[in-house]
Amino acid sequence: MSTPLNAVCLQGFIARNVQEHGGLGRRERVLLAIAADTGVGAGSVLEADVRGALAAGVLSLAELREVALHLSAYQGYPRAVRLDECITRVWEALVREHADVVEEAPGAPAAADRSPAEVYAEVVRRPLPERDGRFHRAVNEFVWGELWNRGVLTFRDRRVLSLVSTALAGHEMPLRIHVTGALDSGDLGPEELEEVAVQFATSVGMPSGQLLARVVEEESAGIRKQTDAM
């Protein structure tokens, strides 16, 4: 059923600026949408995006489960559980419909065995700060020692999920760390990050997307300035 919202927004601006626009691959756009949907509690939209990802073979069941696990650290356990429950419902419905869906990801990256300090340096592109205390030990153990060490998803995948989650939280410092890490590593370039900002804004609202867009612009300009000075 067509509605004014579908006609004006979904078939207009979103189609032109997200679905039909270049700059990001379909996989990254689906990951971004699912992370944003999870963060804002968009139940029916989240279910539609999960179903589309599985039905089209963009993400396997194993990859979607890994997305939920990654988001448990970046968005919180309750939101990750809701996503995981959504994945289960959609998967079971597709099986009942005899849909041809993929369970395991072909050629998925293998799990690594690196220390939290090694993983942090690879992701953030700087040494792990020497800080004590229960909170920092928990972060080092779960985020850097476990999540980013796991296989199934690539670093590029995890960067998209982390960027969306830190932007949703609205905290500039961790967001800036993830933007600079993506740029320094080459996992995501300036134009790709601009596309992330545009799609993120369409999912959560332009005012909320402004912080991500500003950080991407500033960090990209800083890298261009360094390159020109060399």
Results as ranks from 00 to 15, higher is better:
Pro190Ser: 06
Asp37Tyr: 14
Leu31Met: 04
Pro109Ser: 02
Pro190Cys: 01
Thr180Pro: 06
Gly25Val: 01
Glu192Ala: 03
Thr202Pro: 05
Leu128Pro: 00
Asn17His: 14
Glu122Gly: 08
Ser203Thr: 09
Gly151Val: 13
Gly23Asn: 02
Gly170Pro: 00
Ile223Met: 14
Gly133Met: 10
Ala197Phe: 03
Thr180Lys: 13
Ala182Glu: 02
Arg26Lys: 13
Arg137Glu: 15
Phe155Leu: 14
Glu104Ser: 10
Gly133Gln: 10
His136Arg: 05
Pro78Met: 08
Ala167Thr: 07
Arg176Asn: 00
Ala56Cys: 10
Leu183Val: 01
Gly43Lys: 15
Val81Asp: 09
Leu83Gly: 02
Ala182Pro: 00
Arg79Phe: 07
Ser203Val: 07
Asp100Glu: 14
Ala110Gly: 14
Ala229Met: 03
His136Cys: 00
Leu5Ala: 10
Gly186Tyr: 12
Ala36Tyr: 08
Gln199Pro: 08
Pro174Val: 05
Ala42Tyr: 04
Glu217His: 10
His98Val: 09
Arg79Ala: 07
Val215Lys: 03
Thr227Met: 12
Ile87His: 08
Gln75His: 09
Val216Gly: 02
Ser185Thr: 13
Ala182Ser: 15
Met173Thr: 11
Ser203Ala: 12
Ala68Trp: 05
Val139Gly: 02
Ser203Pro: 03
Leu183Ile: 04
Leu71Tyr: 01
Ala201Pro: 10
Glu217Leu: 09
Leu188His: 02
Leu211Gly: 02
Gly107Asn: 08
Asn17Met: 07
Arg114Asn: 04
Pro207Thr: 11
Pro127Phe: 12
Val30Leu: 13
Val30Cys: 13
Val95Phe: 07
Ala197Tyr: 05
Leu24His: 00
Glu122Phe: 09
Ala80Thr: 09
Ser203Tyr: 15
Ala62Trp: 08
Tyr120Asn: 05
Gly22Glu: 00
Glu195Tyr: 00
Trp91Glu: 07
Thr227Trp: 12
Ser162Lys: 03
Ala7Lys: 13
Ala33Gly: 08
Ile223Phe: 13
Met206Tyr: 15
Tyr74Thr: 01
Trp91Val: 04
Leu24Phe: 02
Leu31Gly: 06
Trp91Thr: 06
Val50Trp: 04
Val152Ile: 04
Glu63Gly: 07
Cys86Leu: 08
Val198Phe: 00
Arg27Thr: 05
Met173Pro: 04
Leu128Trp: 07
Ala35Glu: 09
Phe142Tyr: 15
Glu130Leu: 13
Val160Asn: 00
Gly181His: 02
Gly151His: 09
His171Asp: 11
Ala53Glu: 04
Ser185Tyr: 10
Gly209Pro: 01
Leu168Gly: 02
Arg125Ala: 15
Arg82His: 13
Gly133Arg: 12
Gly39Asn: 03
Pro127Leu: 09
Pro129Leu: 11
Glu146Tyr: 15
Val204Gly: 08
Thr154Lys: 04
Cys86Trp: 05
Ser44Tyr: 14
Gln75Cys: 08
Gly209Gln: 01
Ala229Ile: 03
Arg156Cys: 05
Asn17Ile: 05
Glu146Val: 13
Ala99Tyr: 12
Val58Cys: 04
Gly39Cys: 06
Leu31Pro: 12
Thr180Arg: 15
Val179Cys: 06
Arg137Tyr: 09
Pro4Gly: 10
Glu92Met: 13
Arg224Met: 12
Ser44Gln: 14
Gly25Ser: 07
Arg29Met: 01
Gly41Thr: 04
Arg126Met: 12
